[in-house]
Simulated assay, not measured.
Amino acid sequence: YEDEILQAKQAAEEASQAKAKFLSMMSHDLRTPLTAIIGFTEILTLGIGGPVTEAQLDYLRRIESSSQYLLNLITDILNFARLEAGRVDARLETVSVDAALGRAESLVALRVSEAGLEYAREECAREVAVLADPDRLQQILLNLLTNSIKYTDRGGRVSVGCERVGSQTHIHIRDTGRGISVDQIERVFDPFVQVERPGSESSHQGVGLGLAISRELARAMGGDLTVESTIGRGSVFTIALPTSEAIRDERYAQ
Rank of each mutant, 00 (worst) to 15 (best):
R31I: 15
F40S: 03
A11Y: 00
G47L: 03
E216D: 09
I173S: 04
F80N: 12
T243H: 09
S96D: 06
G210E: 07
G206C: 05
G234P: 06
N79F: 12
K9I: 11
I171Q: 02
N72Y: 15
R233Q: 14
A100K: 13
R251A: 14
I74H: 02
T146N: 11
D183P: 02
S202G: 04
Y69I: 03
T243G: 09
A11W: 00
S202L: 12
V195K: 04
S244V: 06
P198Q: 12
L145Q: 05
E250T: 11
A132Y: 01
Q184P: 04
S27Q: 01
D29S: 14
G208Q: 07
Y151A: 06
L30P: 04
E105L: 09
R82S: 13
S24F: 15
G50F: 02
R187V: 08
G161C: 05
K19L: 10
G210T: 06
D175W: 02
E4G: 08
G47I: 05
T53Y: 07
E13G: 03
G39M: 00
F192E: 07
L44I: 12
S27H: 02
H204Q: 15
Y59A: 06
L83E: 09
A240M: 13
G49W: 08
T53L: 04
G199W: 08
E13P: 05
G222A: 02
F237A: 01
N79S: 13
R87C: 05
G155F: 11
L142F: 01
R121S: 07
L145D: 06
R62P: 00
F237P: 03
Q205T: 14
E196A: 09
R233D: 07
V88G: 10
L225K: 02
L92I: 11
E127L: 02
I74A: 01
Q254I: 14
G208W: 11
T152Y: 08
D58M: 00
V128G: 01
A81Q: 07
T41K: 00
R174P: 06
A129W: 00
P242A: 12
E14P: 00
R121C: 03
L71I: 03
R157K: 15
E186V: 12
I247P: 00
S181P: 10
E84D: 10
E245A: 13
R126I: 05
R82G: 14
E118I: 14
S96E: 05
V188F: 10
I63D: 03
I37W: 13
V165N: 06
E4I: 12
H170T: 01
D29R: 14
I48S: 09
L110M: 13
E216T: 02
L71A: 11
G199E: 11
D175M: 02
I213V: 13
L144T: 08
E250A: 15
V52Q: 15
D58E: 05
D190S: 11
L211N: 02
M25F: 11
L23P: 00
L70E: 01
R164N: 04
T45Y: 04
R82V: 00
L117A: 09
A18R: 03
E250I: 09
L73E: 15
Q17A: 13
A36R: 13
L217I: 01
A125I: 01
